[in-house]
Deep mutational scan, measured.
Amino acid sequence: WVPTKREEKYGVAFYNYDARGADELSLQIGDTVHILETYEGWYRGYTLRKKSKKGIFPASYIHLKE
């Protein structure tokens, strides 16, 4: 896992994603996520609506905010 280059990196989910394991994070369309790390097509972070739950999710489900 590699920390993100920018201190504040955010994105928005444009697909729903159902977590398949305890380390994964479920997403709903429109969720804003804070991205902490990246690795081979995956991000690690949390949604702003539930900051206490961190997990991994596919990068392809996220539109990055500039």
Rank of each mutant, 00 (worst) to 15 (best):
39 Y>A: 09
5 K>P: 10
40 E>T: 06
22 A>W: 09
20 R>W: 06
47 T>W: 04
60 S>D: 09
10 Y>C: 14
37 E>W: 05
17 Y>S: 02
45 G>K: 02
15 Y>H: 14
59 A>C: 10
33 V>I: 03
29 I>P: 04
25 L>W: 04
9 K>Y: 09
23 D>W: 10
8 E>K: 09
45 G>D: 03
11 G>I: 05
50 K>F: 12
53 K>T: 08
31 D>F: 07
10 Y>N: 02
3 P>C: 09
28 Q>S: 11
26 S>Q: 05
33 V>A: 01
27 L>A: 00
20 R>N: 09
52 S>V: 07
8 E>T: 09
5 K>R: 12
55 G>I: 02
4 T>P: 10
63 H>S: 10
66 E>R: 12
52 S>W: 14
17 Y>Q: 00
46 Y>P: 02
31 D>A: 04
51 K>H: 09
43 Y>R: 00
10 Y>E: 06
28 Q>F: 09
57 F>S: 01
42 W>S: 00
48 L>V: 09
19 A>R: 01
10 Y>T: 07
60 S>M: 14
11 G>L: 06
64 L>P: 04
66 E>V: 13
7 E>K: 11
36 L>I: 09
66 E>I: 12
1 W>Y: 07
33 V>Q: 00
64 L>T: 06
14 F>P: 00
35 I>P: 00
66 E>A: 13
36 L>R: 01
14 F>I: 15
36 L>G: 01
63 H>P: 01
19 A>G: 07
22 A>N: 10
14 F>E: 08
24 E>S: 04
25 L>Y: 01
24 E>H: 06
26 S>E: 04
17 Y>M: 03
5 K>E: 10
22 A>P: 15
57 F>V: 01
4 T>C: 15
39 Y>M: 13
49 R>W: 11
8 E>P: 10
4 T>F: 08
25 L>K: 00
13 A>F: 04
7 E>M: 11
18 D>S: 11
66 E>C: 14
27 L>Y: 01
37 E>A: 10
16 N>Y: 06
23 D>I: 05
33 V>N: 00
62 I>E: 01
21 G>Q: 09
13 A>R: 03
66 E>G: 13
54 K>E: 10
56 I>F: 11
26 S>H: 04
3 P>F: 02
9 K>H: 11
52 S>M: 10
49 R>A: 13
66 E>L: 13
51 K>F: 08
51 K>M: 09
27 L>H: 00
38 T>A: 12
44 R>E: 05
13 A>W: 05
15 Y>K: 15
24 E>Y: 05
50 K>L: 13
66 E>P: 14
47 T>A: 12
56 I>E: 02
47 T>L: 15
41 G>Q: 06
29 I>Q: 07
50 K>R: 11
20 R>D: 05
17 Y>A: 01
43 Y>C: 05
